[in-house]
Nucleic acid binder design. Sequence first.
DNA 1: GTGAAAGCGCTAACAA
DNA 2: TTGTTAGCGCTTTCAC
Lengths: 359, 359
Amino acid sequence: MAPSRKPLPTKPRAAGITDVARLAGVSTATVSRALMTPDRVKPATRDAVMAAVAAIGYTPNQAARSLRARRTAMVITPTISNVVFGEIVRGIDDALSDAGYGLIIGNLDNKRERESYFVDLAFAGQVDGILLMNGWMPKKDDRSLRDTGLPLVALNSAVDGPDIPKVVVQDREAGTEAAAHLVALGHRSLGYISGPLGSWVQNERWQGFCDGVTAAGLDLATVVHWRGDYSFAAGTAVAEEFLRQADPPTGIFAASDEMAIGFIKRIRQAGVAVPEHVSVVGFDGIKFARFCEPTLTTIHQPLQEMGRIGASILLEMINAPGAPQPEWTRMPVPLIPRDSTGPAPKRSRARRPVTVASS
Amino acid sequence: MAPSRKPLPTKPRAAGITDVARLAGVSTATVSRALMTPDRVKPATRDAVMAAVAAIGYTPNQAARSLRARRTAMVITPTISNVVFGEIVRGIDDALSDAGYGLIIGNLDNKRERESYFVDLAFAGQVDGILLMNGWMPKKDDRSLRDTGLPLVALNSAVDGPDIPKVVVQDREAGTEAAAHLVALGHRSLGYISGPLGSWVQNERWQGFCDGVTAAGLDLATVVHWRGDYSFAAGTAVAEEFLRQADPPTGIFAASDEMAIGFIKRIRQAGVAVPEHVSVVGFDGIKFARFCEPTLTTIHQPLQEMGRIGASILLEMINAPGAPQPEWTRMPVPLIPRDSTGPAPKRSRARRPVTVASS
DNA sequence: GTGAAAGCGCTAACAA
DNA sequence: TTGTTAGCGCTTTCAC
């Protein structure tokens, strides 16, 4: 669609910094300072400025501000349709706007091609630092975001490089804990529903789960691994496979709550009881997990906090280039036991209607 | 928190419009035109510009662009934590960015005080038009957003005024349809779980529900009205009241899916079967409604589309001031029957464990 | 169809 | 501590 044009450049001219300055009897520079760095102006002056600001309802123009001051960060996110990333972004935005920074949200919308646009944006010098939630280094042709020399922080998912601080949850430990939880309940045959393969988080959760499995003395080869993508739909799709299986596992760990819920929904429909026949552990701690049936045992991620921490580190890198930053910040993620997990059934095999009928 | 300062204004100077102009052998004005209004540039010139743009990976600076061109709309939203508003905003943003407009999201975060900030923003002349999703005219002291003379569109909820186009769903008809659906299933005692009282949408849904009740020849006085706020928590709170009631209704209409789900979750816990004892209709059509237990009969809102339509109307008002706009755009909202509604139980009374035991 | 030139509203040297 | 001044990168008259 072609851009619509505005017919007249006439505007109901509004209060600007000059108006404030005039009213307060100071220069625009002082107004700016009073607003940006209050401690660098004499209290009396500051008060006068603030009074003038309040009097005419002055609000700084963001566009002008960021054009001149260039204080903007960018976050690359795989999608914004997923609550998980949405929450992290909120945390980031909080921390950033406290520091007077703007935020450009680079939404990949799960389409890898889109990253080239954001690479251009960075090379065009329009951002001061970048948060990576996608798990890899965005490239366009032969240029990589890393070549911009801009401060980079990986969030939620790791990105290789000693100069890239990584802020993540203890995905690995969480995976292990999920396995331990299931094993402690007596489950001996386990299953795992993955996120998109190849991603760092996904690998960690899986590796951690494997650690837990072997630590319990179980044979890794017996663990069933299904492929998912974090969505409800993936959960139900995996459920179909599960239902076709001759001797499906009784303890399942899903890499997202949505998959766990979709999975449970479908297998219950087919007559499999949760947690009587099968136990399921989710991952994320979305609010919905407390209202599904049964309530979902899950691993709770401190999403907003992750966002805030990642943003703070980025700000420090911008403000003090060269100062060392912790390469890893790994936040603990508690497992919250609810009703979707329970003692393993006597027979290792999950009972499905057909099984019951023929036995 | 005091803003952090950036130490050096040094920047790895990046490709700007001047670089493109030089490379393409034209002036910056022509580059700008080639990008904004391609049809006003000779094809050959345009191609040269585009080639140059691609060659150096030029990306226009948004801040500069909007500072100069001032093409920005604002949307006032009660909260962004609610998926419903989030979806509408996505639709708005789509339409707006197609037209080269930026969007300021005015999040009230359910705190009415916050509106004054956005009133200032509007008076400061920083936006060209405003979408109102909150349902009332924001004010600060004695100034109202209306006094800005800016184009205004009410979205999702109506706002009084002949000059304010309203884009809403057929809340009233939907309420009536919900009632009709329950009545058709044989329910004679009905209940309604409201949104925050006093809001337009809320009134419409309730009025429509009342219409349906009386149309069915039922006594309005028998309809139980509970107060909610669209959240899960409200649903469970209402459920508590429901459970304490001597002779609760068997057909319930909740003004949001979250409330419906919270409500169902709680009453099932107490032994009330859905839909055998009680039928519940939700409102919104969130994706979760297909994965709760039982799946939720609900009224599906075309949220993104509403957003897009509202934005288009606003754009027309900005571009052609004075041109007439439809005062009302009322979108149909289909009721989607699922498993949370079924035939009314024989006894009008919902059976709860205690009832069963004592009968 | 194109170029020259004037700012949009603000911040940050630099001076005073 | 404050004011003066010079732009940030772009769009848009206005003239050609």
